[in-house]
Design a protein around this nucleic acid. Structure first.
Length: 505
RNA sequence: CGAGGCGUGGCGCAGUUUGGUAGCGCACCUGGUUUGGGACCAGGGGGCCGCAGGUUCGAAUCCUGUCGCCUCGACCA
């Protein structure tokens, strides 16, 4: 069928005397169109985000409040994120499991802080068919209670430890306001849940998984992150300590991109997860949990995107290179393009677009979809045994020989990945400030935005005052605690911690 | 969830104030001409006016509820 189509296209051949003239004459108009398609970032960041999500066909809105349809292109990104993370989980000894999506109310209420944290935003199932349930079931907002219940059944001896489980699933939280990927009523994620013999092991696991997340975000998603610990105010409901990776979006707002919690033995005591140790004594396990969600797709959009649309890091892009044949009706063009596609498909995720849209249309379309590398091939190229590579990041053109195109594509994809990370890091650094007094602090938050590094006395009152005055929150206490002053930026008392502050999604 | 704005073919909009049976541009389909940055000509198809009630002889238009989007706040991965 493909061969037949190519044959038909090749029968139609025309001479175009206005080739050059037409191309040049249309330039001004076309460039205007390019800008008009998507709302510009600087004009309206929120609208820009919505435009991209819709126009790149990542999601569609659904009939259910706060819930989104993840379309094939968006889901393909998620699948690549899953692959990258799952590989790392397996490499660190974790196994995948699946828990029920319903939690009996009595189970949810077993741990006090946990239920207080989540109860306001859970969805309840009250009926089965027409019959009212004896005990209502909540749709999981997170699965700690289910894992704990299960662990209490299967952990008896120190020989059963550690348990290193992970689950890929969706969870439901009845959020007040929702936005695709950033906050939806139902979202996809993975949640790791582990049980360990000692507090030290649990702490090591918590930090190890934070490192796994940081490595994944920086090396695969090309998003630089700040690793640190959450303040008590911001930590997970029921956790002893919450660690986080925080990233900075293009508009200067922070995004909590992944969290890793150390539960100590709090859940174990609430759920009775005990084991016999080497000395036949009875001990409680120490637990962790950690998660990354489809929110990471929102981070990719807002860290890398520009006014032309999405910009995907090569390592997770569903299409790494798109081949666009030029003058595809001409003898041999499609054959050569197909041949090139077959050749490159062995090493890369490649798409050949042989639809009858004009090349210019395709250029813009795949830029909008964030494809890192475009490969143009037309009659002139075939004559010279070359192809044109165009980088999504810079739009720079490279004429490369078809003889070593695989190597060229590989080199470009690698350097685009690096270039995107460097650009994101540069942006974050430009939007990171230091404040040593309160006036300076409030001015930076309201005018410049971004991360503000400032000292903190450790008191909840100051955290709350800062939030009330500026709407900025403590994002994390970074592992790098090099102080920037001696006194709390808010109250002036002696400082205990360096904190990254910022407005957050 | 509180305050404000918005919802009309796939997308962007006009029409709503003053009720009279829906229109424009782009997209789409067919044919032809084109093709190196969002092509052109001709013809054609497509609308429960977000959804559900109500008022009325008659509702895109007035009323009530609901769903969704945007902004600010509160809440949060």
């Amino acid at each position: 069928m493909v061969a037949e189509r190519i044959k038909n296209l090749c029968q139609i051949q025309y001479l175009n005397y206005f080739y050059t003239l037409k191309g040049m004459g249309n330039l001004a108009k076309d460039e205007k169109k390019l800008v008009e398609e998507i709302t510009s970032m600087s004009e309206d960041f929120a609208q820009w985000y919505t435009d991209i999500v819709k126009k790149a066909k990542l999601v569609d809105y659904s009939g259910v409040r706060g819930c989104m349809v993840i379309q094939p292109y968006g889901y393909a990104i998620w699948e690549n994120i899953q692959k990258g993370l799952d590989l790392r989980f397996k490499a660190t000894g974790h196994e995948n499991v699946y828990m029920p999506m319903f939690i009996p109310e009595s189970l949810l209420q077993r741990e006090k802080d946990h239920v207080e944290g989540f109860a306001p935003e859970v969805a309840w199932v009250t009926h089965g068919g027409n019959e009212k349930l004896a005990e209502r079931l909540c749709v999981r907002p997170t699965s700690e209670t289910l894992f704990c219940d299960h662990y209490s059944n299967i952990i008896h001896s120190y020989r059963d430890l550690p348990k290193l489980y992970n689950q890929w699933c969706s969870v439901v939280r009845w959020e007040k306001t929702t936005r695709p990927f950033l906050r939806s009523a139902e979202f996809l994620w993975q949640e790791g849940h582990t049980a360990h013999a000692t507090a030290e092991e649990a702490e090591a696991e918590t930090l190890r998984m934070l490192d796994v997340y940081a490595d994944f975000f920086e090396n695969e998603l090309a998003i630089p992150v700040i690793k640190g610990r959450k303040t008590d105010k911001e930590k997970f409901a029921g956790a002893k300590a919450t660690y986080t990776i925080e990233s900075l979006m293009h508009d200067g707002k922070a995004l909590q991109s992944g969290t890793s919690h150390n539960f100590g033995d709090g859940f174990a005591k609430a759920f009775g997860i005990q084991y016999s140790d080497e000395n036949n004594g009875l001990s409680y396990v120490h637990q962790t949990s950690w998660g990354v969600s489809t929110r990471s797709i929102g981070a990719i959009i807002m860290v890398h995107g520009d006014d032309a649309g999405l910009k995907l890091p090569p390592r997770i892009a569903p299409i790494q290179a798109v081949i666009i044949p030029v003058a595809q009706h001409k003898e041999g063009v499609l054959e050569r393009a197909n041949q090139l596609c077959d050749q490159l498909s062995k090493a890369f995720r490649v798409k050949l677009d042989d639809s009858d849209k004009s090349p210019g249309w395709k250029f813009s379309e795949y830029e909008m979809k964030g494809v890192p590398l475009r490969i143009e091939i037309g009659p002139k190229d075939i004559e010279k045994n070359q192809a044109v590579l165009v980088r999504r990041t810079t739009r720079e053109k490279f004429f490369v020989s078809l003889d070593n195109i695989e190597e060229e594509v590989k080199n470009h994809l690698d350097s685009i990945q690096q270039e995107m990370y460097d650009a994101a890091l540069k942006n974050r650094e430009e939007k990171t400030s230091v404040a040593t007094n309160y006036e300076e602090f409030t001015n930076i938050v309201s005018e410049k935005g971004g991360f503000v590094k400032a000292m903190w006395c450790g008191e909840l009152e100051c955290e709350e005052k800062i939030k009330a005055d500026t709407s900025a929150t403590s994002r994390c206490m970074p592992f790098d605690q090099t102080p920037v002053a001696d006194t709390c930026v808010c109250c002036g008392k002696p400082a205990k911690k360096l904190v990254y502050w910022g407005k957050a999604y």
